[in-house]
Write a protein that binds this DNA or RNA. Structure first.
Lengths: 332, 332
DNA sequence: CTGTTAGCGCCTTCAA
DNA sequence: TTGAAGGCGCTAACAG
């Protein structure tokens, strides 16, 4: 089995084919100005030697690496996983590679990773960066080309899920079921995602004076949701809107464990529509952020930048409300 | 804000510091043979110009990229996500970058990605490759350094979860609860993971003639598990062992929907202990493959290879049985 | 159409 | 201790 005799260089191919380096380079890159006969001979030689041009050397001379960096706050987060997957596959389809970096929710790491990964790639995609707006604005300048996911900054291409609209849809859904006392389990206080949700809630309050929405500081994971159960039950609310599906599932599990029936006694809605959402008991009503699509679109934007295409306007993907068994009419 | 004036090269630093290129290189790389005074001057100049050596150029001349590739069959699979996360963080701690590639469960893609990503990195980590043994053996030769996760091939460093032992533990658990008729929901027939499970089942059968284990072809996701519910209920078994947690959750949901009580009528055990497993109703008994640890250990092996350290013997991580509410005594 | 010649940006012998 | 020169492997002008 002729495996890459590590070290075979363009010179070896040239020697074997009896031509110059440049001819090899041209032939292998499909340059039409090369004699078809020679081209064939070169390709045979290359194949015989199992030669492939060194990506590193090409990167240096061409000034591009065929690689983009993706900086993510936490690879364990299902939403980011889905984004990464959509992005990775879309990029692969365009023959680009993906360098992934996990900032572990650290703002400092995020900044550093963005800068260092950018140096070895052609562009960087920041996924839901945790940096505050001023720092983000400052950072992206030195990063270009850059694409933002779920954040925006000046003229930087952006793809976002419309959290506001999604929350509004969920609240409308609950209200239509007769719920007038709703409790919101808030996520990380300083997060942008949380701010968007509060924003939507504020708008809803203004539009519906008869509906009371109280807020309980909670968190973003299962345990946070489970821990919030007593407070939710004590609130007397007939429905609860969790920061995300993880929280909703934690809450669901905990309230059921204490005898509360869902949705008869309490309706629960989540957010994200993670794969597991349709398999809880009862299945969870939630809003789907099309995360894979978000990733694919982010790549599409990046590709435009790399090809020097004109910047398209920011994309706002509308999450889809998925009604399942965890919501029902308010108990009277 | 002095952001990278894109294009600042080592020559610029040399000029500003009034020294030669070599001195800059040496000073910035901490070479002790450079006059401390000059070194300081060089560093100041570099800082003033916001200079950092081009990783690509360094890669070319040094012959290493400070990057490793990870090839995964499916980024959407929670287990691979956890592995990737553990790996990525461990690598980052050693100042290495991670290039990630998703083969989309395609064997051809897997082979191609392994080869192409290897060329732009210092080594490749194959995560649960789907290639058959012969092809894998052939492939890894040209890939070195390479580390395998959940597969092995000759002397190639490997980290694996001991599926056999884990399954055995689950079966012993069920048997101890009095179950004598157990149904196994098989995963993808040709997969190595499935073979390991069947292997464990075979051993268990041999050791316990009084316990009947039947096998139902199923699949690896929620829907497969849900679809298998009728067959499971019809089998008359008092316990079922699902290929993984997703299958178990699908089954759990479907059997409950048809009035079957878990664990009173049917005990269910899963596999993987995905984060959601402890939040189903009832919580799922399962075996935990320490995926993050698997990733971290894979990196550790790779680092050894990169540093030319002596190869350590294959690592076999023992999954931990986590007993929760989905298993109970067999109904009489 | 093909070969020769310069680099891409950096590190590292080799002399001084 | 420092500088000059020669590559790392490849592509792209520039001649022929």
């Amino acid at each position: 089995m002729p495996r890459p005799p590590k070290g075979v260089t363009i010179a070896d191919v040239a020697a074997r084919a009896g031509v110059s380096l440049s001819t090899v380079s041209r032939a292998l890159n499909g340059n039409p100005t090369v004699d078809p006969v020679l081209a064939e001979r070169v390709k045979d030689a290359a194949a015989a030697l199992d030669y492939t041009a060194s990506p590193v050397a090409r990167s240096l001379v061409l000034g591009r690496t065929q690689t983009v960096a993706v900086v993510v706050p936490d690879l364990a987060n299902p939403t980011f996983q889905a984004i990464l997957r959509g992005l990775s596959r879309a990029a692969a389809a365009d023959d680009y590679h993906v360098l992934v970096a996990d900032s572990a929710e650290s703002i400092d790491e995020e900044r550093i990773l963005a800068i260092t990964t950018r140096r070895r790639t052609d562009g960087v995609i920041l996924c839901a960066p945790r940096l505050d707006q001023a720092e983000l604005d400052r950072l992206v300048g030195g990063l270009r080309p850059v694409v933002l996911i779920n954040r925006s900054s000046g003229e930087v291409p952006t793809v976002r899920a419309d959290y506001r609209a999604a929350l509004a849809a969920e609240l409308e859904h609950l209200r239509a079921l007769g719920h007038r006392r709703i409790v919101f389990l808030a996520g990380t206080a300083q997060s942008v995602a949380n701010a968007a949700r509060l924003d939507a809630i504020g708008a809803f309050r203004a539009a519906h004076a008869d509906t009371e929405i109280t807020e309980i500081p909670c968190g973003v994971d299962f345990d946070a949701g489970a821990s919030a159960a007593p407070a939710v039950l004590a609130s007397g609310a007939t429905a609860s809107l969790a920061f995300n599906d993880l929280v909703a599932m934690g809450l669901l599990s905990a309230v059921q464990a204490s005898g509360c029936r869902v949705p008869d006694d309490l309706s629960i809605v989540g957010f994200d529509d993670i794969p597991f959402a349709s398999y809880t008991t009862p299945p969870l009503t939630t809003a789907a952020v099309p995360a894979g699509e978000l990733g694919a679109q982010a790549w599409s934007r990046m590709r435009d930048l790399l090809e020097g295409a004109e910047a398209r306007h920011p994309l706002l993907l509308l999450p889809r409300l998925t009604v399942r068994g965890s919501t029902g009419r308010a108990r009277s």
